[in-house]
Design a protein around this nucleic acid. Structure first.
Lengths: 140, 140
DNA sequence: TTCTAAGTTAAGAATGATTCTACTTAACGG
DNA sequence: CCGTTAAGTAGAATCATTCTTAACTTAGAA
């Protein structure tokens, strides 16, 4: 946490209590929250916080490589504090997003020769299916 | 084309000139158009067409498995008439989306054992990078 | 510790893609 | 050619996200 704070300070960013609360909420968070999830959570401690602040902070974190947008649900953006390459399992029934850390770099590398002209810098896999809860619910 | 028309007729949908124009525009189209792209294109022949018709038709096609939404750009949906499993190369500079038909099923299959409870039914890979045009443009 | 420049907050307006509504029009089986 | 019923249109509504502006903090400097 301390290290994170130092990192942002150095980039000329001011760390307000609201921002610290958002950073703390996100740190290690694997729930892939939306802006609204974050807003609701922070509002408990900072009742006057506005969406502008949430979006401003998310933008700042994105710029400083502290966050990535997860574009899975076309209705709203999800945010992921894990900026390392990883993949997602997505439940088509309830929308649950679970991280997958398997390394597929070897298998995916072959593509680099197959798409004319492209220079690749990253990849992301979505695995679609049905989560455990939704599977057992349907069975019952 | 004839086969496609028969398929939709059987499912109780009415094939209007507007719908046929949209189906024709999409058939074999690999440009991953947005609703606005489709609207603009169809408007040339049907100047009174409305967005409601475009969206209605896209919804109908989706329901009848004639189309998939491509959720890559959080600002707007793209549509892809190719409903078979395939992947996408995405230019981070200009937004170009190119299809990739390499089969990764063997390499990706291992995941099914690694995410507890999930039952998977499909997957999609996004390869991020820079397309040929944007690469040479930056170099020059 | 105090001052100050510059960045941040909050509220609400603005934007823009997509969806909905109400009503008119057209498709198509009989 | 009719009647039923889906589809078309225009415009309003929705909703996530972005923008605007004035008042307020932060953090480094004095």
């Amino acid at each position: 946490m301390e290290a994170i704070i130092e990192k942002y300070k150095k980039s000329g960013v001011k760390l307000t209590p609201q921002r610290l609360a958002i950073i703390k909420f996100l740190e290690g968070n694997t729930s892939h929250p939306t802006a609204d999830d974050i807003f609701k959570s922070i509002k408990k401690d900072y009742p006057t916080i506005s969406f502008a602040t949430v979006y401003n902070t998310l933008e700042m974190l994105k710029t400083n490589n502290g966050l990535v947008e997860v574009t899975i649900n076309p209705e709203r953006k999800h945010y992921d504090p894990n900026v390392e390459t990883h993949h997602h399992a997505i439940c088509k029934s309830c929308g649950l997003i679970v991280d997958i850390f398997t390394d597929f770099s070897k298998a995916l590398g072959v593509v680099e020769d197959e798409v004319s002209g492209f220079v690749f810098s990253g990849n992301h896999i979505n695995f679609y299916g049905r989560c455990g809860d939704c599977t057992s619910e349907r069975d019952s």
